[in-house]
Design a protein around this nucleic acid. Structure first.
Lengths: 217, 217
DNA sequence: TTATTTTTTTAGATTTGTCTAAATATTTAG
DNA sequence: CTAAATATTTAGACAAATCTAAAAAAATAA
């Protein structure tokens, strides 16, 4: 089994290579881990020794099959705990990330499977992210970022790509929660902000915010 | 906030001084922590620096008020999680200790209070131990150990003082679970084992087992 | 009460994950 | 294509928690 810290490295490497299939760079890991590149190099060697990642000097890293399986298992636990916190303990979607960061490291396969069952095998977490099943499989629902839509496009909010409390609270206040339908009316040339209509109300959203809202058309 | 390891030391010191009000010895801590006396001395100094324990060389340690509060909070979390595992996830009473050992270190006051509420503010864990409320208060129900009863005494099983899976499975097999009423018929001079009647069935229990069954007369 | 045993502490080393500063590779720009 | 900028690695150090071996204090026994 991996240490707490090793697990966090695996998870971060997984998320960094989730979309593009590229090797992950030392500096990118350092930024996400809030640490220095030198520390990352040290840890990278350790994970490579354990065959959890493939690593060649200066070439970045890729998860091995074993490493990927471990990473997905952590993601699975994180998202199941988030569902638990929201569905059973009535936390809000912006309050659960940090607690789930801790809970995801609890080490008991039995616990995870029973939790999954207790929650009726949810397919998505409170932020719309898919929850891998116990074999690591999940459906990656296709989405477009709000920032990429054209004027006139209509769609459904099905996720976010930023999980900070500040961001989620902001969306909440704008009424931009999961499942809401929206129509994009205008894209502002000046600053890239977009005008949308949600439940009859006109709202303006900055380019930065629009980038992190995932839409199913 | 304390580290994982510091929390375990506090918890163990708490349990070692729970009944007798004595100072706790280095060796006793070492045994419970599965470590060496030298390591304990090191940690003791650290906890004393943080004012979580009172310590004079060669004199053993006592929790300060702050240390005791921290320890009781860990115990509270441990026992609440055990209730969750048994009541909600259908674990058996002999399966929950190790998982709760991990969960007790999750750091969120809000989480604990909501869990407590979700579980309807339970007063006891699955082994009969009292659960401290959020101010650290709890009723210590008076008990007698089965090994101390006299022939003819009758009582109710209201707890155990040993939480290993092996021990609890053994009790389960004998039908000696919480809430059962028993009558002591004979104490064997030879080996101290006791004969009891539970639900009409005669059972023999070794001295070692009898020592860890808590009875309310 | 002296000697022996037990308990506790100290000294110095080890491991894990981190750091800074300096060196080396790689990439980008002129 | 060389020079500058950026990215990565190495070397050496540090804090946390542990260890072994040896020294010191306390408890027990003769």
């Amino acid at each position: 089994m991996q240490s707490f810290t090793e697990e966090n490295y695996l998870k971060i490497i997984y998320h960094l290579s989730e979309n593009n299939d590229q090797a992950v760079q030392t500096n990118a890991i350092a930024e996400k881990m809030q640490t220095k590149a030198a520390s990352v190099t040290d840890m990278i060697k350790k994970l490579a020794d354990k065959q959890l990642i493939d690593y060649k000097k200066y070439q970045g890293v890729r998860l091995t099959d074993t490493g990927k399986r471990a990473a997905i298992n952590i993601v699975r636990k994180h998202r199941l705990w988030e569902v638990f916190l929201v569905e059973k303990l009535n936390f809000k979607w912006d309050e659960v990330h940090d607690i789930a960061e801790e809970l995801e490291h609890i080490n008991s396969a039995e616990l995870v499977e029973r939790l999954d069952e207790f929650l009726s095998f949810p397919k998505n977490d409170p932020h719309g992210d898919p929850i891998p099943d116990k074999d690591g499989k999940f459906d990656a629902i296709p989405f477009v970022k709000l920032g990429k839509l054209k004027a006139g496009d209509q769609g459904l909010i099905m996720g976010v790509s930023e999980h900070s409390s500040a961001f989620l609270k902001h969306l909440e206040k704008l009424g931009l929660t999961l499942g809401k339908t929206l129509t994009l009316t205008t894209i502002t040339d000046f600053d890239g902000s977009v005008e949308i209509i949600v439940e009859g109300k006109k709202i303006s959203v900055t380019r930065e915010v629009a980038k992190h809202i995932l839409i199913r058309i």
